[in-house]
Every structure is written in structure tokens, then in C-alpha cells.
Design a protein around this nucleic acid. Sequence first.
DNA 1: TTGGTTCTCCTAACATGATTAGGATAATCG
DNA 2: CGATTATCCTAATCATGTTAGGAGAACCAA
Lengths: 180, 180
Amino acid sequence: MDAAWEVARTHGIGGLTLRDVARKVGMRPPSLYSYFDSKDALYDAMFAQGCREFLEAHASVRLTGETVADLKTVMRFFVGFCTENTVRYQLLFQRVVPGFEPSKESFALSEEGLRKVVTLLQSSGVTDARALDLLTAIGTGLADQQISNDPGGSRWIGLTDDAIEMFYAYVQQHMKGEPE
Amino acid sequence: MDAAWEVARTHGIGGLTLRDVARKVGMRPPSLYSYFDSKDALYDAMFAQGCREFLEAHASVRLTGETVADLKTVMRFFVGFCTENTVRYQLLFQRVVPGFEPSKESFALSEEGLRKVVTLLQSSGVTDARALDLLTAIGTGLADQQISNDPGGSRWIGLTDDAIEMFYAYVQQHMKGEPE
DNA sequence: TTGGTTCTCCTAACATGATTAGGATAATCG
DNA sequence: CGATTATCCTAATCATGTTAGGAGAACCAA
């Protein structure tokens, strides 16, 4: 798996090749089939691993009870997680690999991650469904723009706090979430 | 090109195959090389065509001079353009095709499109650079979530106006753009 | 020790898809 | 009409995913 991630980091997640992975671990391509049923199974394992990393990272997010601060924390966590590993972001959050669909086990993991974030946001004080959708859009938008147009930089990451304040001010007035 | 778009619509932009395109136009795969130097050249032609469609659609956007209404118009245009054709969106705005990089001519077209949108936004009254970045993040976020999580629906499209009002209220107070 | 089982990896071969080489047929044009 | 050009084809090559089947080492029970 480490070799696979490394190859993906070099050639892009879509440019991952069993030949390259095999070479990196000192084997021939067919030998990899002892470990993964197919290339998609390898993608699936990587997907699941990424989800677990997400769940793990999520577990260390600490909320204070102060809505705006907590929302900033959650958002920084999310955008940070996305941008710290482009390849993983593409695999987890974009449909970059042509035929790949995560298995139901992996999909369950990803759903769990999503649920956890939503729970965090709700704990932070955002309960309205439309407000949550708006917030997820802002989060993916920031991450997406950061990765696409300023990889390695902080042009959009640096807007996270502004985005939260903008969001909170509006939601408090116009959407009936229950901000504390 | 029509055949290529049709195949892409069916199998996804990454699942596009010269075999399928050839079959659709009643030819053998090698014959396509009379028209495109390579598969990437075909992608590039599609990319350029998508950019031209964007420029064309952009040209019919009419502003009124009222900031919020104009911002809504521009944003609806953008999100609508993105979501009305998923395949085109992936090709133009996401890095879905493994090795594909647009040629400099096509890239110039896409840059022109971007410039036009920025100009529209500036005409609408948003001039601060950070505000513009925030707005592009919101736009891509809405489009991305809509396509990824509710394709064909309107769960995020329906948040466009809210997003603009949220954005405008904040920018007016906290970012030194010159809203009229 | 020995014979079988399992684990791990290999070579050979195949299918698909992009691409190149080179030729045949038909249209066009002086 | 003869030459040129346009258009499309077949045959073959290369890269990659994948399957079939086997060799050798490790391990384990009698």
C-alpha cells in the first residue's frame, strides 16, 4: 500500500500502474494479485485507508462549546485534511478514477466519516439541513480551489475563518438552525 | 466530436474509448487519427469546445447594475453551466483525465473564460481579491456538491441565492470591495 | 526424516486499448 | 486520362490489467 501511495503521489491517482507498484516492491505485476483481487481492489483498500485516516484525524478535533470557534476548528480540520494530501483527496472526494466505485464496506467507512463531520457541525450549533449543505459546499469549495489553483499554498485555506464568520452571521439571521 | 461527447456521457469522461467513438461514427479506431493526433488531442478539442460554450453562454449574461441581483445572476449562470453537463464539468474544471493537460491554445481559452467571470463579478461590485476568491470557492463548492451528491437534483443549486446574500452581507461589512 | 500442504512468487499467455505503418479505393483536378 | 489527394482499412506493436499454471521454500503432522 505504501508503494501504491508513493506511485500515486508521483503519477497521480489515475496514473497509478500495477507495473510501477510491483517494481517498487520488487515483484512482478501478477504477484500483486496474491494481495489484491484487482486494481480496483487496490484502489478500494487505499480508499478505505484514507477513510480511516479521516476518522482518526477527526477524533482529535476538540470543541469548546463556542459556536464560531468550533465551526472554525472543524472547517480548518476538514480543509487541512483535504489539502495536506492531494492524491488522497482526489480518491476520497472526487470521482477521478474511471471505473472505480468503493465497495460497500469502504463506502460505509466514508459515510461514517461524513456523519462524524455532520455531528461535529451540529454540536457546534448548526442544525438546519440547508445550512449544513451550505457549509459543506463552502468546505469543499475552499479545498477544491486551494488544491486546483494554489497547491501547496494557502490562498483559500486562509479564507477559512472569514468563510465561517460569513456563514455564521447569515445562518444566525436567515436559517433557523439553533446556534447557541 | 459529437460521438465523443456521447460516449463520454455514457461511460464517463475517463471511460471514453477510441474504439467506442470509432464504432459510433462507423469507422475503425486508427481512422480517427486522420482527425486527431491522439486521444489527448481529442480531449483537448473537447476541452476547447467546452470553453467556447462557456464563453458563448457567458456572453448572454445580462447585468442590471443592482449588485446582489447581478451576483445572483452570475452565480446561477456558473452553477447552471457546471451542472447542466457533468461530463463537460469534469473535463473543464476537474483533473479527471489521467495524463491530460490542455494545450496552450485551449488553456488560453479557459483563462479567458475565467477572466470573463471575474470581470462580471467585478462589474457586479466585488473588487476585493479575497472576496473574489471566496466567491469562486462558493461557486465551485455549490457546483461540486450538486454534481457529486445530488446529480440531476437541485439541493445545492437551490442554495445559490442564499449563498450570494450571505456572501454580500459579509463582504460589505468586512472586505473592502466597492459594492455600489 | 518424509510427504503433504501452504505460502509466495514467477513465467507465459491473453484481452483491451492506444498507436504506427503502410496500402487500397475513391474523389478530384490539371 | 493520369496524377494527386482524401479517406478509410488491415496488420502489427506496445502498454497495461488479468488469468493460468507451475516452481521453490517454509511449515507441519506422522
